[in-house]
């Protein structure tokens, strides 16, 4: 579905007492393919570039270099019609169910906006479509006349999902869709997303920092650190046997809701470095317990290991 080729996104920032120009490398040379029908998760900690990558995939931002292709077509070489089609086929579900719905629009207008923009349904037909969509995401049809602030967070997230589904997309990019929700509501939304995927054959690009959720929902997982992809693997393999030291540390750090599996995690030292001044060589080497000679001056490539996996580490492969 999507192909990313050496995609890089840099931002110019001014910082420090002299307001010197610096470059923030939000995404730094990412190669990645999203296959039709799969759920690919992007994981990483804050500032690793996963949300920037989502915006690049959604054609909300232009890569500084590299290419993003959707079904073979470069996103920035499309004509108007192709962009329109792209906007229908690729939709997004947002993190914050409070900020992602226009507070001055009724639910019917919010969900129906895509139908209006793409001229898919009007008048009574549109109303009927909206009601149908609300029902599919588990909201009562009366919700159509209400404003977003009348709903709880989970219900708002359902509205956001109905909006994304309205234009019958093939791909849904979900940026932390459950992280702002209460635990009991998270599960409802995850179940809803999984059900919709099966019913409609959707492709998900799922962005999350919550590895428990990622393990639960994904087919494949891409781990990002400081703008780079450090590991890419089928979810089952990754969680059974993480290869990159960062992935291992990440998995170790997740508190498992099972006291019998209590363990002393191998705690990573230090903070994530700034993407403005990333360390030379492997971006992870200052925190890496396994670093050795080449790590501080040679950037490891993302190399395939085994059948469907790839890892960027001098220790592996």
């Amino acid at each position: 579905m999507f192909e990313l080729e050496a995609v890089t996104r840099h931002y110019a920032v001014r910082q420090g007492p002299f307001r010197t120009r610096a470059v923030l490398r939000a995404v730094d040379g990412v190669d990645l393919a999203v296959h039709a029908g799969e759920t690919l998760s992007l994981v990483g900690e804050s500032g690793c570039g996963k949300s920037t990558l989502a915006r690049l995939v959604l054609r909300l931002e232009r890569p500084t270099s590299g290419r993003v292709r959707y079904r073979g077509q470069d996103l920035w070489e499309m004509d108007r019609d192709a962009v329109r089609r792209f906007r229908r086929e690729v939709q997004m579900v947002f993190q914050d169910p409070y900020a992602s719905l226009n507070p001055r629009m009724r639910v019917a207008q919010i969900v129906g906006e895509g139908l209006a923009i793409h001229g898919l349904a009007r008048g009574a037909e549109r109303d009927a479509r909206v009601r149908e969509l609300l029902e599919q995401v588990g909201l009562p049809p009366e919700a159509a006349g209400a404003y977003p602030h009348e709903f709880s967070g989970g219900q708002r997230q359902r509205v956001g999902i109905a909006r994304a589904l309205a234009v019958e997309p093939r791909v849904v990019v979900a940026d932390e869709p459950v992280s702002a929700l209460d635990v009991s509501v998270q599960a409802q939304i995850l179940n809803l997303l999984q059900g919709l995927r099966e019913d409609r054959g959707l492709t998900y690009l799922f962005i999350s920092h919550d590895l428990r959720v990622v393990e639960h929902i994904s087919d494949r997982v891409a781990v990002m650190y400081l703008g780079r992809l450090v590991e890419l693997a089928p979810a089952a393999d990754l969680f059974r046997e993480p290869l990159h030291p960062y992935t291992r540390a990440l998995l170790d750090a997740v508190p498992v809701p099972d006291p019998d599996r209590r363990r002393e995690p191998r705690v990573l030292e230090g903070d994530v470095p700034s993407p403005i001044a990333p360390p030379p060589g492997c971006p992870f080497h200052p925190r890496c317990p396994d670093r050795f000679e080449p790590c501080d001056h040679r950037v490891p490539e993302l190399r395939p290991t085994g059948t469907a996996r790839a890892v960027a580490c001098h220790r592996c492969g």
Partner: peptide, 20 residues
């Protein structure tokens, strides 16, 4: 804000985003 981004993802043009 995210709802403006949402409108853009839906394919809304500048005019629609400004006015609606």
């Amino acid at each position: 804000r995210e709802f403006v981004m949402a409108a853009r993802v839906q394919g809304a043009g500048d005019m629609r985003i400004l006015l609606r």
